[in-house]
Amino acid sequence: MRVDLLTREYPPHVYGGAGVHVGALAPHLRNLVDLRVHCFDPVDGHPSVLAHDLPTALEAANPSLQALAVNASMSHAVAGASLVHSHTWYTNLAGRLAQQLYDIPHVITAHSLEPLRPWKSQQLGGGYEISCFMEREALSRADGVIAVSHAMARDIIEVYPDVEPARVTVVHNGVDAGEYAPDLGTDALEKQGIGVERPTVACVARISPQKGLLHLLRAARYFIPGTQLVVVAQSADTAAHRAQFAEAVSAMEDSPVDVHWVEGPFPRRALIQLLSHARAFLCPSLYEPLGIVNLEAMACGTPVVATATGGIPEAVVDGETGYLVPLETAPADRVGLDESSVLAKELAVRVNALLTDPVSAERIGRAGRRRVLAHFSWDRAARQVAEVYRSVV
């Protein structure tokens, strides 16, 4: 069976969880099907990965129009496939067009839903309506829909009532627990100018309202004085979001916590060492269908403190592999000032509990790695995805 997988991101051009997912899943799928990957940016070194160039005339166009152009190219290029599998709104329409053109099944993995991310209108402007259309048109007619969590599956059915529940299958994200494993070395971190002499809290996220990084910095003001907070945040949805975060980081200079923002290249080994040495990993997301970063932290033996939103509770077991903080948000794109203060304090209380009790933190970290080994692997995910393929062909 030839499967053509459609994605905007593919290594080394990865800026979010969907790109991590596709890059990690593809090698395992190649062991199960004849896999070809179609992506946006040039990729060297693999004959079965095809990049689709953006027409020169659209280089300054709205990202949604650029995506439409690439979708047309992809739908033409997948001729001969037995099945197409699209990821995110950026390629969903290509899958739908191929489904119509060649009468082949279309499978979608839903990593998020555009109507639940209204802040995307800041990034796409009027193109947000186009991204919503592309996602809606494809999801409502897909032969199979893969949700990365049970929470995501519920969202799909609620937001898109045309999607029959029987067509939705939950396949959790995975993590390479061989690569993401405790590494107590410090050489890679030292090359990045990061020491681990002080109790450290880590966060890895894209700079986006979705990820709650401003709430992270508010919470940090309540951390035990002398704590080091290392935030690996290299990509931003918009220049305005980056500028806003930079201003917030600068404002932390008067706090008793040392904030280290990693905004440039950060080697994988340095990241693994950071996670391995961190007393806690903090994930303050306002919307998170699952959160691969939480799995990566758990695989490195790090307790996770996170908001109990979306699929996070399916990965992080409260009191066992970390701590969860209830998140009440209405509307979905922001948290009011009063709620923000409460959220920051509640996150900090749980982080401080780990900072002051290293024995419990180590125990919780070990439990997290055991949970990852038992339930979250890319090999397992690939086999479940292949079962979805077989069910619709």
Results as ranks from 00 to 15, higher is better:
360 S>M: 12
316 V>P: 02
92 N>P: 01
195 G>E: 13
76 H>Q: 15
333 D>C: 04
34 D>L: 05
353 A>P: 05
299 A>R: 07
70 V>N: 02
114 E>Y: 00
154 R>M: 11
203 C>G: 08
193 G>D: 09
156 I>A: 03
297 A>D: 03
200 T>F: 00
197 E>R: 15
269 R>D: 14
38 H>I: 10
344 A>W: 06
129 E>I: 01
159 V>R: 07
329 T>D: 02
160 Y>H: 15
52 H>G: 10
87 H>N: 12
130 I>E: 09
177 A>N: 08
180 Y>T: 05
150 H>A: 10
298 M>V: 01
158 E>P: 01
4 D>G: 12
282 L>E: 04
203 C>T: 03
141 R>F: 05
53 D>Y: 00
221 R>H: 10
208 S>M: 11
106 H>R: 06
186 T>N: 09
387 E>C: 03
388 V>Y: 04
167 R>V: 15
204 V>G: 13
205 A>F: 00
307 T>N: 13
138 A>R: 12
36 R>V: 11
123 Q>L: 12
192 Q>W: 05
69 A>S: 11
213 L>D: 08
175 V>S: 02
346 E>I: 03
8 R>Y: 04
193 G>A: 07
390 R>V: 09
33 V>K: 12
338 D>W: 07
345 K>Y: 04
11 P>G: 06
88 T>V: 14
216 L>M: 08
322 G>L: 00
184 L>M: 13
215 H>S: 09
344 A>I: 04
68 L>Y: 04
39 C>M: 10
337 L>Y: 08
315 A>F: 01
8 R>K: 06
322 G>Q: 02
184 L>V: 14
321 T>E: 00
238 T>W: 08
162 D>R: 12
112 S>M: 15
30 R>G: 03
24 A>D: 14
332 A>N: 02
371 R>D: 00
126 G>Y: 00
312 I>T: 15
214 L>K: 06
231 V>Y: 01
200 T>V: 04
258 D>C: 11
133 F>A: 10
71 N>I: 08
